[in-house]
Design a protein around this nucleic acid. Structure first.
Length: 271
DNA sequence: AATCGCGCCTGACGGC
DNA sequence: TGCCGTCAGGCGCGAT
């Protein structure tokens, strides 16, 4: 399931191949994604050039003057570069066919992903407008989290997963970062002090950077643009490890449901 | 204003 | 073996 590291892995994988390439055409085989793929999209993209591939939160942004193609991978989506002549498989919903004979192929079994086109600055798009800071950027730190969390009564884990507070921290990395920082995921966000938020912000950066380094986390279906899985799964400290010993104190890892999400923590060393 | 709960969708998995 | 019910999971949205 693509979280920020998986999307960044995808961006890094495709950028060298697609940057500067001319789009021959867009082939839409299945427009029924989370939102319908705009019918006008093929006309807008044909014969245009991809200038840049960037990322905001979990959105991939392809700069294609005069606009921007915005892609979200949902939770089962992946983008791969394949020969345009390769026969598409069942969940290969669209192909961005490039001038060099390859195509960028979007595969998404659950169809929670989406594709958007905007000719305004992408930051103004309704889906991006309200997003919080990038966790790996300077604008994100413990002081920001501390300020944002005052008087919040919700648990810190769903607080972290709220993209208005910080983007890109999904279910896996929220559990991981809270373990690294020694914070109980169920603790009220408003009852955590400034210093602990500084530790938490550092833990988020550490976990995300390490996950990007490992090529993301593959649980079931995430594949990078070259078709290889991510290897961060082997580095996960608590996620998916209920009953196993905590890597820090050896007490058992617990599985709870918090905000309707599976949440893993150590019964002893997170407070 | 903050928070909760729903629904989208498929594949995996467990029970029988 | 095969069928069927259940569930995860990102995230926007409507309800509270």
């Amino acid at each position: 399931m693509p979280e920020l590291p998986e999307v960044e892995t995808t961006r890094r994988g495709i950028a060298p191949h697609v940057t500067g390439q001319r789009i021959v055409r867009l082939v839409v085989r299945e427009p029924r994604l989370r939102w319908p793929v705009p019918a006008s999209l093929p006309d807008r993209l044909a014969d245009r050039r991809i200038e840049e591939v960037s990322r905001r939160a979990k959105y991939l942004l392809l700069t294609v003057p005069p606009g921007t193609l915005i892609l979200h991978l949902g939770m089962s989506g992946s983008l791969r570069l394949v020969p345009a002549v390769r026969t598409p498989a069942r969940h290969d919903h669209l192909d961005l066919v490039l001038a060099d004979g390859l195509c960028l192929r979007l595969t998404d079994p659950r169809r929670f992903g989406s594709v958007h086109w905007t000719e305004a600055p992408p930051a103004d798009h309704p889906l991006l407008r309200g997003l919080g800071p990038e966790p790996l950027a300077d604008a994100f730190d413990g002081d920001w989290l501390y300020t944002r969390s005052r008087h919040r009564r919700s648990a810190v884990k769903p607080f972290l997963m709220n993209a208005q507070n910080v983007v890109g921290v999904g279910n896996i990395y929220a559990s991981e970062a809270l373990h690294l920082a020694g914070i109980d995921p169920a603790r009220a966000a408003g009852r955590i002090g400034r210093e602990r938020y500084r530790e938490l912000a550092a833990a988020i950066r550490t976990v995300l950077a390490a996950a990007i380094e490992a090529g993301g986390t593959t649980l079931r279906d995430f594949l990078a643009s070259d078709g290889r899985p991510g290897y961060f799964r082997h580095h996960l400290r608590v996620y998916g490890r209920a009953g196993e010993p905590c890597p820090r104190c050896a007490a058992p890892i617990r599985l709870r449901v918090l905000g309707q999400r599976a949440t893993y923590d150590c019964v002893r060393c997170q407070h």
